[in-house]
Amino acid sequence: MTYMEEHLETPVQQVLQIMQRRIMNESTYFGIKTLKSPIDFWIYQEIMFETKPNVVIEIGNFYGGSTLALAHICDCLGRGRVIGLDMSHHNVPKSVKAHPRITLIEGDACKLFEVITKLIKKEDSVLVIEDSSHTYDNTLKVLRTYSPLVKPGGYFIVEDSICHHGLDVGPNPGPYEAIEAFIDENKHFEADRSKESFFISWNPKGYLKRLE
């Protein structure tokens, strides 16, 4: 009997806890620690294939595993580049920093907004992924600051809205409440719940689509 077969009657909340431990303690991408739900990352590549962004802005990179994975998707698409923003990139290995599609910038994402806009052409399509401190105030500030870069049909992904909405971890209020506040004030975006079609997602309401 497999581990899964032993837990077929396990409540979803306990399943989430099992998955969280795996994500936080063991998950890697090309040998680089990657604190990311593989279920959600599958959705990311679907979104990137669908929208074919010229630029992916990843706010919060930590070890850089997901940054490298995003760059590899760009490789497969034959287009696009990744701008990684974090307060520090000292944990990011040389193999990530050396990838030609990756640009890493250190500092506060909102304070660096004008610097980032100079790296983006007016006609570029942009995908933004927010994965920084997860506090309500910071998440809402990042949403307000970077959302104008997303064109109609594009996406702004807010990660870890599962905080206190599936898992008792992280700030409270956190990303989930910031998403609701942002959608309430900005009618140009809606939560695309179809992107949660695997049933389990670390980003409930976090796939924000820019409307036409």
Rank of each mutant, 00 (worst) to 15 (best):
P173Y: 12
A98Q: 13
H90P: 02
E123F: 06
I116A: 00
H165C: 07
K111A: 13
L85I: 15
F182H: 06
N172L: 02
D131K: 02
D86F: 11
G170R: 03
G80Q: 07
M87C: 13
V92R: 00
T117I: 02
H90Q: 11
G153V: 10
N91W: 00
E159C: 07
H165T: 08
C74S: 02
I120T: 06
E123P: 10
D108I: 04
G154H: 07
T135H: 13
P175E: 03
K121L: 10
I157C: 10
D75V: 01
I129W: 00
E177W: 12
M87Y: 15
V82H: 11
D124H: 06
I162Q: 03
V115I: 08
Y176R: 00
H89K: 01
T103F: 06
D131T: 08
V128W: 09
I83F: 14
I129C: 02
R144P: 14
G174Y: 14
N138H: 14
I120D: 04
E130L: 13
N91T: 02
S147C: 11
D168L: 08
C110L: 02
V128N: 09
K121A: 09
P100G: 04
L167E: 09
E177V: 11
L104Y: 14
V92N: 02
N138I: 05
L127W: 11
D131Y: 09
K141T: 15
R144K: 14
K121W: 04
I157Q: 04
L127Q: 09
E177T: 08
F156H: 12
R144S: 10
C74V: 00
E177I: 09
D137F: 08
V115S: 05
V150L: 03
G166F: 10
G154S: 02
S95F: 02
R101K: 13
Y146W: 10
L127N: 08
G78L: 09
V169Q: 09
D131M: 04
T139L: 01
Y136K: 07
K97Q: 15
P93N: 06
K94Y: 14
Y155L: 05
T103E: 13
C76S: 10
V92C: 01
F182E: 07
L167K: 05
V169E: 11
D160V: 07
I120K: 01
T139D: 03
F182K: 03
